[in-house]
Design a protein around this nucleic acid. Structure first.
Lengths: 205, 205
DNA sequence: ACCTGAACACCGTTCAAGT
DNA sequence: ACCTGAACACCGTTCAAGT
């Protein structure tokens, strides 16, 4: 075939195929993406640099449109909750992407924009400047961690009978994977809000 | 050679070699582990089941001996801090292992034991039973997330000039990778303690 | 029981060749 | 500019063969 009259591939098509594979199987590979798109493996390199590049493009796609948040006209606590929930909302549709995101530096400007919004709200909350980045990091851990839990099997920890009584009791009567991940996220978010409130009051951690 | 008079390999030796590779390079492979140990790749399968099994054995090794914590004779806040810091202490020596741990279910009993201790302290703090597992999950996110940050490059987020002013200001004057990871962890831990305190008082998140 | 070596089905990336 | 096909250096896992 050689060069076609109009391109068979595009960055967008590659990202779509890769993301679909991640959603379905938890991973992607060049051979599989190429097969989906009906091209040869090496053709991908005409549009993207390497594997990392595809991952970063997927990050951009997934975090492109967080639910808009009105930062101005609500107390910082509500603004922070809304912002973090919007951020988390992006991950929920593609939780299996999270392991690929976690080991790679954030370059996507959409995500940087979300961080900026968080920084604004956190300063408004009264957090010292030196605590803003730690706070954003903590939020990142919470959002990505609880997204990761969405991909976990039904039984996460299986303590053997008898030993570990307190943990066993706490585990009994837990809901589905989604309910557990949501509960952990909601708990973490309220802990965060309460913690930021006291940090803003008393400073220095 | 075939079967030697005394075994060339052992589970321990395999785990040691794999962990050394992870510490040095961020990953391990069967060929590389085998080369280190001077055996053929397939010989490893006489001692371990598969790749996941090696990862789980590494988890056990790394979390085998957290610094002991006196849970009884101190206020729950101090006990919780000590427990979480001991947990984190285990990861600091092997931060590059964290990405491998994060996608795999915890089976190791040492780690389950740490969770049990946390559950005890969290109940003592007055947390409702339904909040214990969410709290432990939140702690997990914090510890593993901040360990992950230890492996990040010096520049994590690089917002372009001009836009993102608040974030840029917050980033300016950050310390080294270790300092940033420590600051995020310490911030998250104090937020956690403060948050658990208010959760215990007011319940329901 | 415990090793070797060959085999298999995968990877990511490069590069010459074609239009 | 944009594709194919072959090549290279990697993976994890299995299995027959040897002692």
């Amino acid at each position: 075939m050689a060069r076609p009259r109009s391109p068979l591939l595009s960055v967008d098509a590659i990202v779509t195929a890769a993301l679909a594979l991640v959603d379905e199987t938890g991973d992607f590979s060049f051979p599989k993406v190429a097969r989906r798109l009906g091209v040869s493996q090496s053709a991908l390199y005409n549009h993207i640099d390497n594997r990392e590049h595809i991952v970063e493009l997927m990050r951009g796609r997934v975090f492109a449109a967080p639910a808009p948040v009105d930062l101005e006209n609500s107390p910082w606590e509500d603004a922070l909750r809304a912002l973090v929930r919007a951020y988390r909302g992006c991950t929920v549709a593609h939780p299996r992407l999270v392991p690929l995101l976690i080991t790679q530096t954030v370059q996507d400007l959409g995500v940087i924009g979300i961080y900026e919004d968080m920084a604004v709200v956190l300063e408004r909350a009264g957090l010292g400047r030196e605590a803003v980045v730690p706070a954003i990091s903590t939020i990142d851990y919470l959002v990505l961690g609880s997204a990761l839990d969405l991909t976990a099997p039904e039984v996460v920890w299986a303590p053997p009978e008898g030993q570990y009584p307190v943990l066993s009791r706490a585990i009994a009567g837990l809901g589905s994977v989604e309910e557990r991940a949501d509960a952990a996220f909601s708990f973490g978010l309220e802990v965060l809000v309460a913690g930021v409130r006291t940090q803003a009051l008393h400073g220095i951690y």
